[in-house]
């Protein structure tokens, strides 16, 4: 393998993924570039259907039959996975990049013991005996706070929180440098969610894996990730250090997202962004956000903006990123968005 320290852990460049649909190919991810360093936590946020899960599946290399990677590179420790042969691809799965899936509820096979499902991942990559894999499985469960004797149980005997912990144990089974987490706690109540993230952070301190955390929940990103990427309709529209991006967004969509959050101690009603995401089988020729953007110019409807650096470590995909300081106060006003709501489309 190539020396990993000269390359970022994961580097995605110009990725495009489309799904074949009856109405033609849907561009679920377009021109997406992303980088995660060693030990770094990156949050990925965006509304439902913007392509977050699609991105993770493309990285894991498990896409449905109708999905196609149309362009781009996904380099893990410097080696491209898109062009890699199946053998190498499979060896990177789980041992290099593992994943905590969106619904732990359905991610465990109901008719197999939880322990067997973890041990199986170990034995797929390491030449160890059954007994040894089982011992490791019990140690992993203990590590995530599940009693080791529960390894013999079936998934339906686990509570939702325990299942999620089991999936995390599974994800850490081979000590991978990168863990992807797709809304790991959406199905759980807040208390359990907190506990799980606490132990996830503690484990990360010990094991030093990088985390790509996908969520709708801005609060989780603020607590757990030093950097954040905001996605809209298959594209990254803004990235940067989490604090900066949340405090002073440089993209109208991020401004809108922030408005939509209920603010503690504020009497302002949250403002929703009017409209919905564009039809991905026929994406707009210009900016994908143009139809919902209160600041759209005629240029925005014809020319797609590029992702450009707007400040050190910060990028935005907007023609008006430079004027954002003037636009931000306007974006905080409900009438700015209301105008859009009333206007004929």
């Amino acid at each position: 393998m190539l020396p990993s320290d000269t390359h970022p852990l994961l580097s995605i460049t110009g990725l495009a993924v489309s799904y074949g649909t009856p109405r033609g190919p849907a561009s679920a991810i377009a021109d997406l570039s992303l980088e995660i360093g060693k030990g770094e936590n990156l949050g990925l946020i965006g509304e439902s259907g913007c392509g977050k899960s699609t991105l993770l599946k493309a990285v894991m290399g498990v896409m449905p039959d109708n999905a196609r990677i149309a362009a781009g590179r996904i380099a893990f420790q410097g080696r491209d996975l898109v062009a890699a042969d199946a053998g190498f691809r499979r060896s990177v799965r789980w041992a290099g990049i593992s994943m905590v899936t969106q619904s732990a509820l359905n991610a465990l096979n109901p008719v197999l013991r939880v322990g067997d499902q973890i041990a199986e991942a170990i034995r797929a990559h390491r030449d160890v005996s059954r007994a040894e894999a089982w011992r490791r499985t019990e140690a992993l469960l203990t590590m995530v706070g599940v009693a080791p004797e529960r390894a013999r149980d079936y998934p339906h005997q686990f509570s939702g929180g325990m299942r999620q912990r089991a999936i995390i144990a599974m994800a850490l089974a081979l000590d991978p440098p990168l863990v992807l987490a797709d809304e790991p706690t959406t199905a759980l109540d807040v208390v359990v969610q907190d506990q799980i993230f606490q132990s996830l952070r503690a484990l990360q301190q010990r094991l030093g894996f990088s985390l790509l955390l996908v969520t709708h929940d801005l609060a989780l990103v603020i607590e757990n990730c030093e950097r954040v990427a905001v996605m809209y309709a298959g594209m990254i529209v803004e990235t940067g250090p989490t604090r900066d991006v949340i405090r002073r967004p440089t993209h109208p969509y991020t401004l809108g997202l922030k408005n939509a959050l209920p603010r503690l101690g504020s009497r302002d009603e949250p403002i929703a962004i009017p409209g919905g995401p564009p039809d991905l089988t026929d994406p707009p020729p210009g900016c994908r956000f143009a139809a919902r953007c209160p600041f759209a110019l005629p240029l925005c409807r014809t020319e797609p903006p590029a992702l450009t650096t707007v400040a050190p470590g910060r990028q935005a995909r907007c023609h008006r990123a430079a004027e954002i300081d003037a636009l931000a106060p306007l974006a905080a006003l409900p009438q700015t968005w209301d105008a859009l709501r009333d206007a004929p489309r």
Binding site: K57, R93, V111
Partner: peptide
């Protein structure tokens, strides 16, 4: 084959054969 646990079994790096006979077929027997 469309179930989440099949996808996870694939992501774990199991061989396609193992995914189908160890996971999918085991459930389809019911």
């Amino acid at each position: 084959i469309g179930e989440d646990y099949i996808e996870l079994a694939r992501m774990k790096g199991l061989s396609e054969r193992r995914v189908l006979f160890g996971h999918a077929a085991r459930n389809a027997l019911l």
